[in-house]
Design a protein around this nucleic acid. Sequence first.
DNA 1: CGAGTGACCGCAA
DNA 2: ATTGCGGCCACTC
Length: 106
Amino acid sequence: MLKTESEFKQRVCELVSQIPFGRVVTYGDLAISSGHPNAARIVGQIAHFGPPDLPWHRVVNRMGGLASGYYGGRECHKRMLETEGIRVDVNFIIINFEEYRWRLTA
DNA sequence: CGAGTGACCGCAA
DNA sequence: ATTGCGGCCACTC
């Protein structure tokens, strides 16, 4: 068996790194796809302390809104999404979020 | 090693 | 419809 240490993190890390361009995912989905339906909080921790190489800017909350602890602030995050071709509301909420939402193969 | 925190989500009043 | 609270697991100090 694999090491029981942070199997969850490995899963989330992998999924995030596999998010296609111009696509977004929710913390909840990542948690569910990782095996823990209500571990969305952990995803946030991993996102904050996790590897910066991963496109965390493509990860948003359930409402499709940008997070708060992103490096540089929501402004940077918003620009990133816009760079990906995703329209973001002035309230930092992704427009047509469901349309950009990437379906995880749970 | 122990305690606190956290980029969340879901439900209840 | 809105607001408030709890829970769950991992990571850091």
